[in-house]
């Protein structure tokens, strides 16, 4: 069927298995590395991360897509070692979580320069790690509206995606009109983009998921597990049943099963924030898939959501 760039090299799409398409080994806002309150030893990071990836592997997980862009603590040599020692494919991203996580060098850069940065990381490698990015991350800055810098990053991502064949994933699906316009102008088909976080507690009622899907975009329900029922929920948490019902509606009566992706957006070992205790990528196996089965979703549909859709999406299209 094709191939996907993982941190240990390109692999055949057929080997990806079950895919957690929007996760983080460890995310930290740029500058958080200066604040020693968050520092962890390498021993601690491995201790927090390896058991989660091993459990993911044992549950039948195949591929972990790291959505941590440039400047957010992305660490390719670490990812390579984690992948090699746990047997989980890790796909790294180029791009930025949002304009507000792009440091000055990139914030001042032209669309052409940003595209060159992304293309280099996809075709040559990230830093001196030799690992190639398998997806491009873009996103909407805090505040709910796309900034000029967000738009430049989206446009650069569209050009890099078109040239290299990798897909684009967004942080937030709010204010999608300018994004869709940019992808259209650059000639990137919307099925090469997943509009993410349509399901979170803050943005779900502002995200036009069915409208984006009607235009051909893929839709990411990818904050599964950030629930108001948690002892110390983050501000983007949502009642568990609300999110699940939203998801079931989207793949059921609204008919967009073929365009849906699902993930948990968990941090294995957060870098610049406390993280959310108890929330891991394995929510997919421990809670989400059982919830789907309890709601009457059959195994073929579960395979569509977690295997076929993300594999088609991640496969290099060029």
């Amino acid at each position: 069927m094709g191939k996907v760039n993982t941190v240990l090299g390109p692999v055949a799409t057929e080997t990806l298995g079950l895919i957690a398409f929007h996760e983080h080994i460890g995310y930290g806002m740029p500058g958080s590395e200066l604040d020693s309150k968050w520092w962890k030893t390498p021993e601690q990071k491995y201790e927090e991360t390896v058991p989660k990836l091993r459990a993911f592997h044992e549950y039948g997980g195949g591929t972990f897509v790291d959505a941590t862009g440039i400047c957010n603590g992305r660490d390719l040599d670490y990812y390579k070692s984690l992948s090699a020692k746990t047997g989980v494919h890790i796909v790294a991203s180029t791009g930025f979580v949002g304009g507000d996580t792009a440091l000055a060098h990139f914030a001042h850069a032209s669309v052409e320069y940003l595209a060159d940065q992304f293309i280099h990381e996809i075709t040559v490698g990230i830093g001196n790690s030799g690992a190639k990015a398998g997806i491009i991350k873009v996103g909407v800055s805090r505040g709910g509206r796309m900034t000029d810098l967000d738009k430049r990053i989206y446009r650069a991502a569209a050009r890099a995606a078109k040239l290299t064949g990798v897909a684009v994933m967004t942080h937030l699906a709010i204010d999608a009109e300018p994004a869709i316009e940019i992808f259209g102008e650059e000639g990137l088909p919307l099925d090469r983009v997943v509009f993410g976080h349509v399901d979170d507690g803050v943005n779900h009622d502002k995200s036009k998921d069915t409208w984006i899907a009607s235009l051909g975009g893929r839709i990411g329900f990818d904050t599964f597990g950030y629930e108001t029922e948690l002892p110390d929920p983050p501000f983007w948490a949502r009642p568990r049943k609300d999110r699940l019902d939203h998801f079931l509606r989207f793949i059921g009566e609204q008919g967009y099963l073929g365009q849906v992706l699902a993930s948990a957006d968990a941090n294995c070992s957060p870098l610049g924030w406390p993280g959310v205790k108890g929330h891991t990528v394995n929510y997919i196996f421990e809670d989400l898939i059982p919830d789907l089965r309890a709601a009457g979703i059959d195994e073929a549909t579960i395979t569509t959501i977690f295997v076929d859709n993300p594999a088609d999406f991640l496969t290099l299209h060029n």
Binding site: M29, P30, G31, S32, C71, T101, L103, R142, V202, W273
Partner: peptide, 16 residues
């Protein structure tokens, strides 16, 4: 300010 990281400018709080 333009040289500061997002950690200081748009922290993971609501509002940022």
């Amino acid at each position: 300010e333009e040289n500061l990281g997002g950690y200081f400018l748009t922290p993971q709080t609501n509002p940022p």
